[in-house]
């Protein structure tokens, strides 16, 4: 059997010491080893965006990132964007306000992508939001509400 490697990962400003096989993706490390199941496994193939998290503040797909690659980097997941006292992130509030989900499975990825999208300044129009959120699929088709939520959260961030 493959031997495991010891990784020290910085996730949501907390240090996790994990023993994983080298092939383990960041997604599986988060869910199965660190117990952070907010990040979702959709296609596990880089096509749906459900596993989106941030590495050093940039949105990436955790299903196509080896956990070992993320060592020494700052990882942020959906569990890490609310404040320490539990106040939700403005994007989370906007998603609730606009009903920007139905089943909710793509929502953590949508929100992580939206947080980065707003930070990147890619929310100048609904078309731009749609283009820069296109890596996050929603099989329920809640796109109109998602765009509305991202737009409102971006406007609040500007205010």
């Amino acid at each position: 059997m493959t031997r495991t490697i010891r990784l020290s990962l910085d996730i949501n400003e907390r240090r996790y010491e994990l023993d994983v096989e080298p092939r383990v993706t960041l997604l599986d490390a988060l869910r199965d080893h660190a117990g952070l199941t907010g990040t979702k496994k959709g296609c596990d193939q880089g096509q749906c965006g459900a596993c989106t998290c941030h590495i050093d503040g940039q949105r990436v797909l955790s299903c196509l990132t080896l956990a070992a690659q993320a060592e020494g980097r700052r990882i942020t997941t959906i569990e890490g964007i609310a404040t320490a006292n539990g106040d939700l992130h403005p994007v989370q509030l906007a998603f609730m306000e606009h009903d920007a989900f139905q089943c909710g499975y793509c929502t953590p990825g949508q929100i992580m992508s939206a947080v980065a999208c707003i930070r990147e300044g890619r929310t100048g129009s609904d078309d731009e939001i749609r283009e820069y959120m296109s890596g996050n699929l929603c099989r329920c088709g809640a796109y109109n509400s998602i765009v509305a939520a991202v737009r409102e959260a971006a406007e609040m961030a500007d205010a």
């Binding site: 880089g46 949105r59 990436v60 992508s113 999208c117 820069y132 296109s134 890596g135």
Partner: peptide, 9 residues
Amino acid sequence: AASQQLRNM
């Protein structure tokens, strides 16, 4: 090409 997540990687 691709999506912003993939372009960041």
